[in-house]
């Protein structure tokens, strides 16, 4: 464990807390893409298959349970909670995310470290996580004005993988055998998707103005 990775995990946790806060405090999920949340459930379930077989540390196990539990809770809330599901902008959340699942799985069948069930699903979860934010970013551009909590949610979500890239660079120099090209390339692509969002987020922060994404 290094400071970059810990910062990344904490930033990831903060993004989930901000989203849960927004949904529970405002009893609204307006501006939130249900499709992105469903993709995250698939990412965590596919990646943490080793949850009960390989014990790495209490921290590792607890965080995996938190990520799986919170992503399921958010999807449940947006689909089932009476008050919240009414505020879901279904007509704005139109990204065909099934293609992202299919594409990531096909890519995992082609590009992986070992052709084993667990490795294929791990690579699948890495590729899917890189594109999982797309429905959310498309929805933000469609909905124009972004409320503060939603903007902060996306910002922390983008920042977490940026910290992980620093972590991979650090591990590359400190651990000779470290194999990381799948996660690193995918992490770079993932963070690149946030580039324009980060730009507009910074502008809105500098001008102390509301976050506006060009349609």
């Amino acid at each position: 464990m290094n400071i970059f990775r810990f910062a990344g995990d904490m930033t990831h946790l903060i993004s989930i807390v901000v989203l849960l806060l927004k949904i529970y405090a405002t009893k609204s999920c307006s501006g939130i893409s249900l499709k992105t949340q469903e993709l995250y459930v698939i990412v965590f379930l596919a990646r943490y298959l080793d949850l009960f077989t390989d014990f790495i540390s209490v921290y590792n196990t607890v965080m995996k349970l938190v990520f799986i539990g919170s992503s399921l809770a958010i999807v449940w809330c947006m689909r089932m909670h009476r008050a919240v599901k009414r505020t879901y902008d279904k007509e704005l959340d139109t990204f065909r995310h099934y293609f992202l699942v299919l594409g990531s799985f096909v890519l995992a069948l082609l590009l992986h470290e070992k052709f084993t069930f667990q490795e294929i699903f791990w690579a699948f979860s890495i590729y899917l996580e890189a594109v999982a934010i797309l429905p959310q970013l498309v929805m933000l551009q469609r909905s124009g004005n972004v409320d503060n909590l939603t903007g902060q949610y996306v910002f922390f979500l983008g920042a977490y993988r940026a910290f992980y890239i620093l972590n991979w660079i650090y591990r590359f120099f400190t651990e000779p055998h470290f194999s990381r090209w799948i996660a690193c390339l995918s992490g770079l692509v993932q963070t690149a998707f946030y580039a324009d969002f980060f730009y507009y987020y910074f502008i809105s922060w500098k001008n102390n103005a509301k976050l506006q994404l060009p349609a």
Binding site: N60, W122, Y164, H177, S179
Partner: peptide, 10 residues
């Protein structure tokens, strides 16, 4: 032991 793989990450 086995080289530290990336699988110890979240």
């Amino acid at each position: 032991g086995a080289p530290p793989s990336i699988k110890d990450e979240l």
